[in-house]
């Protein structure tokens, strides 16, 4: 199993939700990885991110979004 494939899948899921203007409201990390809670219109979706690259990607996206917000 190539971990890169797993990561690509996780990245696709994160991007998809962010592109749908879902916002991240909560991130929880534990022994099993990161659990990201997205909300949109009272709906809550939780993504389970397992790969280290996925968890890194998540925080880079969070950081970019925060930067965007402070700039606008």
């Amino acid at each position: 199993m190539h971990e890169f494939k797993l990561f690509t899948e996780e990245k696709r899921e994160i991007d998809e939700l962010l592109n749908k203007d879902c916002s991240i409201v909560r991130v929880q990390e534990n022994l099993d990885g990161a659990f990201i809670q997205f909300t949109q219109d009272d709906q809550t979706i939780t993504l389970h991110i397992r790969t280290p690259d996925g968890r890194k990607y998540l925080t880079n996206q969070l950081s970019a979004k925060r930067l965007n917000r402070t700039m606008t």
């Binding site: 409201v25 909560r26 991130v27 880079n60 969070l62 950081s63 970019a64």
Partner: peptide
């Protein structure tokens, strides 16, 4: 790669999301 981010910066960032 993306802009630099250290572990300490990451944890500070995540703490604002209840992590």
């Amino acid at each position: 790669t993306s802009a630099p981010m250290t572990w300490n910066e990451r944890q500070r960032l995540l703490s604002t999301f209840g992590g």
